[in-house]
């Protein structure tokens, strides 16, 4: 049964404490502001609101 369950999830959404959101696996990301749609396989998205390269993380969460 456990195996069946595993097969049903296509991607891993990882919330990194005091850091970005890491997404890996089979997913399509759509940036509604830019109108872009891609399937990169792995991506790091900003969660702190400070990145200069939104929606992507640029490490700004580590800066004071």
């Amino acid at each position: 049964m456990e195996e069946k369950k595993e097969n049903r999830t296509e991607a891993l959404i990882k919330v990194i404490e005091a850091g970005p959101l890491k997404i890996t696996g089979n997913f399509i990301i759509k940036d509604l502001k830019k109108g872009e749609e891609t399937s990169p396989g792995e991506i790091w998205l900003c969660r702190c609101g400070k990145s200069a390269n939104k929606p992507y993380c640029d490490g700004s969460h580590n800066k004071k």
Partner: peptide
């Protein structure tokens, strides 16, 4: 086999909306 890709939408001036079947790893 990858049949149904998860949809990740970056909303304008808003959140990230994740839709589909996925594993959420919250810390």
């Amino acid at each position: 086999m990858k049949e149904n890709p998860v949809s990740v939408k970056v909303m304008v001036d808003g959140p990230i909306v994740v839709k589909g079947s996925f594993t959420l790893d919250n810390n």
